[in-house]
Design a protein around this nucleic acid. Structure first.
Lengths: 205, 205
DNA sequence: GTTTTATTTGAAGATAGATTCAAACGCTGA
DNA sequence: TCAGCGTTTGAATCTATCTTCAAATAAAAC
């Protein structure tokens, strides 16, 4: 979203690559576009990166990692007292924050993982799994508190929720809607997808 | 997903283009790959299509339209007696069917709309809006039956649900999970996102 | 102020992919 | 058999993009 202003050339190229990548896709991201956005001639990129692939790979790694770190930190900051439902709400909010407001690195990842050549996926696949593990942890906490919907296909539920969140990069426009409304709607969806229908009155089921 | 076997050459090229497009993205879809999948030499494509862009554009149009038609028909077949909740469930199922089992046309659309050059989007933008209208209709029906969550940001809710469904193309693998489980989980999510928390016991709220 | 090092660039090379086209193929009807 | 038409192809062209490299520029060290 926002381009950091005064920063080293290498960072500027990396950020430009994230932006172009998230708009044009893996194959469509031209080195010349990236260089132009970073206010350099194309060959300058090679002073900082071995090749186009190395550059793109690093964008992906940074993007994947920043989502993991941002959401993890947000959850950590809640402290030990927070219940599973509150933590789920916070995770939804944090994911949307990093996806929509933080930078183009996150969207570069979500919009391109599926289209990357195999070799490129290796590096950040581990971080991807680690992020899934965070969400699986949230489901486990919900379960421990008796909030998780019984008989739930956990993997499917986790991916559906993350899919809804990731897809926001395709349509959400800060000019068009209020971020907090989006968060509220997304939280409702996540709760609906994961928790039992009547979590507050289990005796009525 | 599945490639129809005995069909006209033009259809074969179109289907091959859908497959390549859904795997490699707009910029990454090479005419040579498409031709190879269609068991032809590259120049043969030009006998049926004016250019790469025309071919891709037609894939998109077909994909967008097939989703619209498939889901619309599924809803129509429910007949007039079906309530809003049942119709929502059917729409979720139908969307997943066409996205995951029908063909690569649908996934070619969902995985590429965001990355297409502006000119290419024109043709099928209208169908996209028509499809959104179908879902807005479902929300209106839920509302009419008093099932819709009060104070809901309808646009956000609609896009979150569709995002979750569209994203399945990125991760769902028929070998890895049961389709009906996925449908059930997705229905739960859609209901959770759209309907009031206690639709059956409104008096308890 | 001059030498040294880091950074950036213009120009050129190499390759891949879209497109054109004339020729070849193969089928159908006389 | 052959003339004609629809279809497919190999070879050639054109263009865009990645990459290399030696030279130019800017910055730093002395």
């Amino acid at each position: 979203m926002t381009q950091p202003e005064t920063t080293g050339t290498r960072e500027r190229i990396l950020a430009a690559a994230a932006t172009v990548l998230s708009r044009k896709g893996y194959a469509g991201a031209r080195l010349s576009d990236i260089a132009e956005l970073a206010e350099l001639r194309t060959p300058a990129v090679y002073y900082y990166f071995d090749s186009r692939e190395h550059l793109i790979s690093e964008v992906m790694t940074v993007g994947q990692r920043s989502v993991l770190e941002y959401v993890t930190r947000a959850l950590d900051e809640l402290g030990a007292g927070a219940g599973a439902a509150v933590r789920l709400d916070r995770a939804v909010e944090a994911h949307l924050e990093v996806e929509l407001s933080q930078s183009d690195f996150a969207t570069a990842v979500t919009r391109n993982v599926g289209q990357l050549p195999e070799e490129l996926q290796e590096g950040f696949r581990a971080d991807g799994h680690r992020y899934f593990a965070v969400w699986d942890g949230l489901l486990a906490e919900l379960d421990a508190e008796g909030l998780l919907a019984p008989g739930l296909d956990r993997r499917a539920a986790r991916m559906l929720v993350l899919g809804a969140l990731n897809w926001t990069a395709e349509w959400w426009d800060p000019a068009h809607g209020d971020f907090l409304d989006l968060v509220e709607t997304a939280r409702r969806m996540a709760r609906g997808a994961l928790t039992a229908s009547h979590p507050l009155h289990p005796s009525l089921i």
